[in-house]
């Protein structure tokens, strides 16, 4: 019995993806190391993403504070606003929103860039010139996304909390010191560490899916568009799947 194309295609893609991941880990530890290209990718992927991440983080903190305030007033716990916002941002909203924005900017960019390099034979040219294109293009990008997203998330959390502080002061008055004292007093080891660890996995998935889609791009320029689109959609989906698994694991470990 022959399986329908979409089912066999799903299994084929899953198998190819598994091979791609295995090759990534093989090439990651094998010399030669493309250090300069890795540093360049950290700059392009990490540093240049900061303005976008900071703006969205700031708005996220401000809006969250303004929307939470009426509910907390209704329950008479307005004083808990910094605690509520701090926990929400650090544990969940900060990592997930930052990862989604990052996926939209970086995963699609990687998918389109590698896809275009594939269809214009630039990847073949790299191989012919004696450079391992997988190591040069894929390993450096995936490593950069894996290491840069946690850094961006920490920065985004900080900017969000500052936005939240301004939100608190729109209709009230709290000093910066008191606001951050309340936020940090409510945060524990079990809030910060799992949230930070999952961002490494988010970053890994975003980079890997972007590279996989681009590296396996087919059908000319149409394929490049498809790769970029699929990279965003699939990596966004993976962010939620990883988040779900992370919640289950932290729950099992008693960190929730």
């Amino acid at each position: 019995m022959k399986l329908p194309d979409y089912i066999s295609g799903f299994f084929e893609d899953t198998g190819n993806m598994a091979r791609f991941v295995a090759r990534y880990f093989r090439e990651l530890f094998r010399p030669r190391y493309e250090v300069r290209q890795f540093v360049r990718q950290c700059y392009l992927i990490g540093v240049l993403s900061f303005p976008l991440i900071a703006v969205t983080g700031f708005i996220m903190g401000l809006v969250l504070t303004m929307q939470l305030r009426p509910s907390l007033i209704a329950y008479g716990v307005e004083s808990q606003l910094p605690v509520m916002v701090g926990l929400s941002i650090v544990r969940e909203i900060g990592p997930v929103i930052t990862a989604l924005i990052f996926a939209g900017k970086i995963s699609s960019g990687i998918g389109a860039e590698l896809g275009s390099m594939k269809v214009t034979e630039q990847i073949d040219a790299m191989e012919v010139s004696g450079t391992n294109p997988f190591k040069y293009l894929v390993v450096t990008r995936v490593l950069a996304t894996t290491l840069m997203l946690p850094v961006l998330t920490v920065l985004s959390d900080a900017v969000s909390l500052y936005g939240s502080y301004l939100g608190v002061n729109i209709k009230g008055h709290t000093s910066l010191t008191l606001y951050f004292f309340q936020v940090f007093q409510s945060l524990g080891f079990g809030d910060v560490l799992p949230a930070l660890i999952k961002t490494f996995f988010f970053g890994f998935a975003i980079g890997l899916i972007g590279c996989y889609m681009g590296y396996n791009s087919k059908k000319g320029t149409e394929g490049v568009g498809r790769s970029a689109n699929a990279a965003v959609v699939v990596s966004s989906l993976f962010i939620f799947i990883i988040d779900l698994l992370a919640v289950q694991i932290t729950d099992l470990l008693g960190l929730n």
Binding site: E113, S116, M117, T120, E121, Q122, D124, A125, M126, V128
Partner: peptide, 12 residues
């Protein structure tokens, strides 16, 4: 040496 049909110059 290999001269590609599409030239394959690195865009970046």
């Amino acid at each position: 040496g290999f001269l590609f049909q599409s030239n394959a110059l690195y865009d970046s």
